[in-house]
Write a protein that binds this DNA or RNA. Structure first.
Lengths: 184, 184
DNA sequence: ACCCCGATGTAGACAGCGTCTACAGGAGTT
DNA sequence: AACTCCTGTAGACGCTGTCTACATCGGGGT
């Protein structure tokens, strides 16, 4: 296996195990058994390496939402659950994927992977006759709005702010309310 | 004015002007005209200083949603618009407020300010007979879900991902769809 | 066979960062 | 007057990302 791929793998493991702060170029190099300058032979800098990691994160996320069984409505609800579940299961990867300061937002592979996720989700939304769709709303706008709702749910949950004093909802119960709002 | 308050003010200006990455202890100290070690006489570390800045951010946000005129429904929609508008107008502050790695999440003043925002929002939601409320959903759960939807909208917009190829919605149009989903 | 050159990896250096420690002055108390 | 706490300064340390100089090695052209 090439050093480049080994660096990406090592970074992914470090990310999942130690969190996003622990993913430093020098730490990755040490964990991969190379010198601290070796990563710069394969990536222009930290942002480019992390972009490669985040790109694989989007690919993993897409693989979850793709080819789900069931009716259009079932597939959409399954995709929504899957999105939140991905974030809660891989919090560090989820954070990296949406941290503009850590990745190279101009990376074509990264933006392609990200758009792939949204496009697939938009197709799922378009196949379900939601109340919003019946009222004539733009379907891509509905998809963006629902995606944002799921995204905010995951983000706020990871942030820890949804559990206030004397109020500790589960992510599932909040997600159920969200899906109720959109799917009727 | 005391040095402590001057440091908070300087950090806020630096945050708004240069972004969250530029808010370094040494940079704040230089901008405030003190030595690089002076901030540590007033704050235990960077996290505590940034927590004070974020606390004021929550206070500013709360001031926007408080005492809005009109009917309960009008006040809720105004608060929703206000939340997204705050994020889009103060992107660096908004990012800082939800960056757990930058602030001290155990700071009592910070968590109190954050809960104040959510509690105020929850009161606004409880005063409006939404379709979800009529169907018997927990009102605090509805508030959390709607808050998450607004939050995700702001976050994804700042992230830049809502504008895909051949699809460039405005934040307002996406927000309108979101409000439609929750308020019917 | 030889040479050369590009690719790959190493080691050292540099500036910037947060944080710790030693030191200096100044204000207030006893 | 002496002592103590508060505030500020200056230097140091280890960490980071990144740059540069140098070594090594393998394949292609003469």
């Amino acid at each position: 296996m090439g050093t480049r791929q080994r660096l990406i793998d090592t970074a992914s493991e470090l990310l999942a195990g130690e969190g996003v702060d622990a993913v430093t170029l020098r730490g990755i190099a040490k964990a991969a058994g190379v010198s601290h300058g070796a990563p710069l032979r394969h990536f222009s800098g930290r942002a480019e390496l992390l972009s490669a990691v985040a790109t694989r994160g989007y690919a993993d996320l897409l693989a979850r939402g793709d080819q789900l069984p069931g009716s259009p409505r079932e597939r959409l609800t399954a995709a929504c659950h899957s999105y939140v579940d991905f974030a809660l299961t891989n919090p560090a990867m989820f954070e990296l994927m949406f941290r503009r300061d850590l990745v190279d937002t101009t990376d074509p592979a990264l933006s392609a992977a990200a758009s792939g996720v949204f496009d697939t989700f938009a197709v799922l939304v378009a196949a379900v006759p939601t109340p919003l769709a019946r009222s004539g709303a733009d379907l891509r706008l509905v998809a963006a709005s629902l995606w944002a709702a799921l995204h905010g749910l995951a983000q706020l949950w990871l942030w820890g702010g949804l559990a206030g004093a004397s109020f500790a909802p589960s992510p599932e119960s909040a997600l159920a309310v969200t899906l109720d709002a959109y799917l009727g």
